[in-house]
């Protein structure tokens, strides 16, 4: 059990180098531009946390238990790799600059010297993996996603918590040819002194089982809010007064993920369930899961 837990922690750690690089870039932006720069990342966090909450709408009426991994690959569209910065009077935003996922930053000449914007991390997709356990009884399923506090350096910690409840609707409609369920999920993700993410999602999903094979479809409304705390690195040569003075800043960023449609299928082989689906949203998500279902 200790070895399995170690593997889970290490798999999540695969994403943490991302945070080290990102924090450096925030410090070169004022509050308005850091929101534009970071919004695609907020969208990714919300998209990831709100994904892969189901692989069937057939919720057991007797007791059931499941434990597994959820993995996803989030695809970043081109239009989320650049933005036009907001500059003060005397400066012209005559060219775009990189968002967090873009390539190079830009430089804007003006009456107080150059304002420079940071580069992005130049990636087109992000993988995310996390564990999930669930239990079901009388047509109700409860999901839980949890990571205990994981130290990241001296003072920072990473933690995750998520809970979801699914309820079988089709149990009240006996002759319905498909299974239908409704689900609500709430997830949080925190890196202390940096980022605090909260997500909520509501969906309805349907599935039909053909032996070991179950295709499923769902429609989901979701919302993501990210509180970002960062330090502006003071640069006396910047044309931006906020960058010249530096200081600690806190901003709230809403993710661009509001609605998604999901289509997928699962395969049950004894106690092992493999599922894969694609979700069409602000950022397309390719998801997969491995579940041990008892």
């Amino acid at each position: 059990m200790k070895k399995i837990f170690t593997l889970l922690v290490i798999s999540f750690f695969l994403s943490t180098p991302l945070f080290s690089q990102i924090e450096d870039r925030f410090g070169a932006l004022n509050e308005k531009n850091v929101i534009e720069y970071t919004q695609p990342f907020a969208t990714t966090l919300g998209t990831a946390m709100n994904s892969n909450g189901y692989y069937t709408a057939n919720i057991p009426k007797l007791f059931g238990f499941q434990i597994g991994f959820r993995g996803m690959l989030i695809l970043i569209p081109d239009d989320q790799t650049t933005f036009t910065p907001t500059l003060q009077n005397g400066y012209t935003s005559n060219k775009t600059t990189a968002t967090i996922y873009g390539d190079k930053g830009s430089a804007y000449a003006g009456p107080d010297g150059y304002i420079v914007t940071p580069p992005g991390i130049n990636i087109t997709s992000i993988p995310v993996v996390y564990p999930q356990i669930g239990a079901s009884f009388l047509g109700i399923e409860v999901l839980l996603r949890y990571l205990p506090e994981i130290p990241l350096g001296e003072n920072d910690k990473l933690s995750m918590f998520g809970i979801g409840v699914s309820y079988s609707i089709s149990q009240y409609i006996p002759l319905l040819p498909v299974d239908i369920a409704a689900q609500i999920m709430y997830n949080t993700f925190t890196v202390t002194n940096l980022i605090d993410v909260s997500n909520i999602a509501f969906n309805a999903h349907a599935s039909k089982t053909f032996g070991v094979f179950t295709p499923y479809f769902g429609l989901q409304y979701e919302s993501t809010s990210v509180d970002l705390e960062y330090d502006i690195t003071a640069d006396p040569n910047s044309g931006d007064p906020a960058i010249r003075s530096g200081g600690k800043k806190t901003v709230t960023i809403d993710g661009d993920n509001n609605f998604r449609a999901t289509l997928g299928a699962s395969l049950q082989l004894a106690i092992i369930v493999l599922n894969a689906d694609v979700s069409l949203s602000s950022q397309t998500v390719l998801s997969g899961g491995l579940t041990f279902s008892f």
Partner: peptide, 30 residues
Amino acid sequence: TITAIFIIFTAVSFNACDEFNTFPINIPIS
């Protein structure tokens, strides 16, 4: 099985991490 899945996602993650090796920063002077 868990180890195999972990290795697959490790490979995917490190492929996505190739672009982390260098990044260009702008340095203004006056």
